[in-house]
Design a binder for these strands. Sequence first.
DNA 1: CCGGAAGTTGAATCGAATG
DNA 2: GCATTCGATTCAACTTCCG
Lengths: 374, 374
Amino acid sequence: MSNARLVSQVPDADTASWCNTIIKGDCVSRLELLPEKSVDVVFADPPYNLQLNGDLTRPDQSRVDAVDNDWDQFDSFAAYDAFTRAWLLAVRRVLKPNGTIWVIGSYHNIFRVGSIMQDLGFWMLNDIVWRKANPMPNFRGRRFQNAHETMIWASRDKEARSYTFNYEAMKAANDDLQMRSDWHFPICSGGERLKDESGQKVHPTQKPEALLARVILSSSRPGDVILDPFFGTGTTGAVAKRLGRNYVGIEREDDYIAAATQRIAAVEPLDSLSIRVTAGKRAEPRVPFNTLIESGLLQPGTELTDAKGRYSALVRADGTIAVGNEAASIHRMGARVQGLEACNGWTFWHIRHEGKLQVIDELRRQVRSSMETA
Amino acid sequence: MSNARLVSQVPDADTASWCNTIIKGDCVSRLELLPEKSVDVVFADPPYNLQLNGDLTRPDQSRVDAVDNDWDQFDSFAAYDAFTRAWLLAVRRVLKPNGTIWVIGSYHNIFRVGSIMQDLGFWMLNDIVWRKANPMPNFRGRRFQNAHETMIWASRDKEARSYTFNYEAMKAANDDLQMRSDWHFPICSGGERLKDESGQKVHPTQKPEALLARVILSSSRPGDVILDPFFGTGTTGAVAKRLGRNYVGIEREDDYIAAATQRIAAVEPLDSLSIRVTAGKRAEPRVPFNTLIESGLLQPGTELTDAKGRYSALVRADGTIAVGNEAASIHRMGARVQGLEACNGWTFWHIRHEGKLQVIDELRRQVRSSMETA
DNA sequence: CCGGAAGTTGAATCGAATG
DNA sequence: GCATTCGATTCAACTTCCG
């Protein structure tokens, strides 16, 4: 695999040989070929174990093209459970300790998948509901229209603390409101839906790229490795490549592999500027309070107050602030004057600047900005 | 139980002695007192087995009042599974062959509940998503906002063919479109939320009556018997009585029984079932900016400018826009480049389209119009 | 000009949370 | 060390209007 296949700014020289390939075969046995702790994110769209009896016809007597493939046939819940446990275990071995996994399913299988994930030690972060903009109607009128599917997002371990979640990016993309657990997307159709020469859909359950894009943008960084053990026609690979991530797919059926290979080859990765992840304050360089003093933005002896002028403190040369005889950090003193356990001093304290109160976090922003240009 | 009673419009004199009562005690042992095959619908809101560590504070340092009741403490998944199997078995005995059961839960427990239901022979009809209009935010920014809960609706047996589903009523209530599996309701608050003398909520997880009303209206008929084995403060009973159904509740805690008794006594049954749960015409749906990208109307890398071309920004794949090294939402970046506090990014930013500038609000209009036709 | 009703604005509160 | 919150609801504070 040449580095040229990967976009810039990503760790490329040491990308493993199996990256950005489709491995043919059964996912449990093929996963044994991958090193442990080597992938950042897993997206899995396993067989749903639909239990369909006979044909379903629309009110006009046309026949619904159901999922009746061999790969969705299981003899019992026990057989499906064993299958599920096996692939989840195999996937867990290759997942990094801080990696996360997504599994999508419907009410036919998602409860079994979720239980087994918990039994194996995965730690649930969210269940995400994909609300379909254009779901298939319920033709018999005996149930509610099945208008959603469910995704489970989980970390490899309960103890994982530094899994990737691009909170700020999701929030900014959602008009500055934090992203909820219910997502709204159309199903995969139109030009995006892969068809064969005779116009038949290549895969019965192809997922929309927009769904995968949000999955990947929320829980991975450029250059990460994303594994899809049920690759199908390669939606995960196509979106990963477009977004500057590495993929690895496992698939049994030659037809699907052929379609996915062709599809992914046609994908043009976005330039590196377009895929940069919006970082939250967590990722910004830490600026100690006394940097403000050292840089001359703030003089010792300056008076700090809260936004309403109820409390005041004096800046001291050593980077502490004083109230009466006591001195402490901006955070501890902010907490103490309010009688709270904790306080963010950067957003609590203000200075008087040209007659108006200005939060000292603004001074920190100026320091950071000058750090970048320096 | 006579057939005549089943078709009457209201619960009447020949109802069994245990109907419209609250039975005190543990639900598994108390259910043994009820005759088998005697209830039409079960609604169950079992403990969720939340596994909370320590306190959670809001960004303003106020403390979140968590669910820390004894009844939600289990030693292990195995203990929770045994509890779940026991009450589901007991409930199944008293359910009529054509009866159905609803169980509500969250990702903490719903996968275990669903698996066990399938193992015991219940047959899933739908999973229903309750999308909360006003969920609690995620204060730490480490996950998606947990904005929904899940209900499972199942028949007692796979073979049940004549369970009750008021398809036409649901469709009529939904502006003549089939009722979908995703429902939208506010959480229980305001005057509906039961408070004690000191203003504290009586029950930590009281469900909204609107939710129960749709459950009952969709899956039962007037005069039916509805069992709630975790009665709590009696939402199921209050709504059942109002809608002309019989209820029977089982509850262990005296405080909850007292509150439920008083609450239900104050309920006036409706004289007509023409009252339906109105979904209410929603305001124009909010379209987050990244919907434009996800729908393909706007490509990452596209340049945005203001109407006079003084400022420009780059669209990124994650739904933010970038000016230089900084990225933010369309609104915040619009404000920043102008040096303002706020800005409506939808009307500020434009794209070049066929040689002319087009405001991105026009793209939003296109998305909304395609949502309507879908 | 006074008193009270009625309407408006803004602050404060709080919710099944593996945080 | 210091980052992190959304929407419904209620209540207090204030304004306006009318007799």
